[in-house]
């Protein structure tokens, strides 16, 4: 079999990629925890953010990591508008309708991008994309190391926003007790939109972390949707800690599967976990409520 060194490196790779997965899942689980909706457009919104990062790099020469400063506010605004003016009003608050509206939204986004950019895959070429960080005998990809730290930092920032700011307190209040929050004067639809926007801002950061090592095409987000859902379900719908742990775990599982079963069948591992968790432990590892 493989030398321990190779296995260790593969698992570390998985862990680092898992941190970015976790960031994507964080947005999804936050939205679920507060709005109690499954946002099927999450993957398509990630694609939008990735195209944004690509456009900034291609046409304005903005470094992908620096583009976080532009893309995070932009995606925040887009997310706010999408929830406030499309998803909220169109779905009349029913679970099934929200699912269908977000599905419709994802199809509009995917195909809008397809019409505008065609289906070519696009990449950003940076000097550091294929640099390595040498950790003893291990060769770690530089962008992935950056990904790990920035993802963890973003989670920390998100936590601070939720715990330490007025907006965060309002979000937590709405998540716990929607009617009560409304009674004490919190504008629920505004809080909903802010939450959705925060989830989209997480996607902007994830997109910036992915672009130096990954490509974007109009359907790129699809590959991440089910991975993100798996993480959210595994960690417990609505649980932030769960999304973090779940993300890292899924990253490692994916790396191990593809090392031992090959990349083709390795993807099945994630879906099987997803199905098993849904069937046998729908509350996930950390979720108390459903």
């Amino acid at each position: 079999m493989y030398s321990p060194l190779i296995v260790a490196e593969a698992l570390l790779n998985g862990l680092m990629l898992g941190a970015v997965y976790a960031l994507i899942a964080l947005g999804l689980t936050l939205i679920y925890g507060v709005l109690h909706i499954v946002n099927f457009a999450h993957g398509a919104l990630l694609t939008v953010a990735m195209f944004g990062v690509w456009l900034l790099a291609e046409h304005l020469g903005v470094d992908p990591y620096l583009s976080i400063l532009i893309m995070a506010p932009a995606m925040f605004g887009l997310g706010y508008a999408a929830q406030r003016f499309v998803i909220g009003p169109a779905s009349h608050g029913s679970d099934n309708s929200i699912l269908l509206v977000t599905l419709g939204l994802s199809i509009i986004i995917e195909n809008g991008l397809l019409a505008g950019f065609r289906s070519d895959t696009r990449t950003i070429d940076t000097d550091y994309a294929f640099q390595v960080v040498e950790l003893g005998p291990l060769l770690l990809s530089f962008p992935r190391v950056v990904g790990l730290f920035v993802a963890l930092l973003s989670a920390l920032v998100l936590w601070a926003i939720l715990e330490r700011t007025d907006v965060g307190r309002a979000i937590r209040a709405v998540a716990k007790e929607k009617l009560g929050a409304a009674l004490v004067g919190i504008e629920v639809s505004h809080v909903y939109a802010v939450t959705f926007a925060l989830g989209c801002a997480c996607l902007a950061v994830a997109a910036a972390l992915l672009m130096p090592v990954f490509y974007v095409s109009p359907t790129t987000g699809r590959a991440f949707v089910l991975v993100a859902f798996t993480i959210v379900v595994l960690g417990g719908m609505g649980s932030i800690v769960g999304a973090l742990v779940g993300g890292l775990l899924i990253g490692v599982v994916e790396a191990a599967c593809s090392l031992f079963f090959g990349d083709s069948l390795g993807q099945i591992g994630i879906f099987v976990i997803f199905i098993l968790v849904l069937l046998f432990r729908p509350t996930g590892l950390f979720g108390a409520r459903q």
Binding site: Y2, A10, L17, S141, Y215, L259, D263, S264, Q267
Partner: peptide, 20 residues
């Protein structure tokens, strides 16, 4: 013999195996 899907997201595991 190492197989991978198209499009592939990442070749690092394939190359790790080659390195080994």
């Amino acid at each position: 013999t190492i197989s991978h899907p198209t499009p592939a997201r990442d070749m690092s595991n394939v190359v790790l195996r080659l390195r080994s």
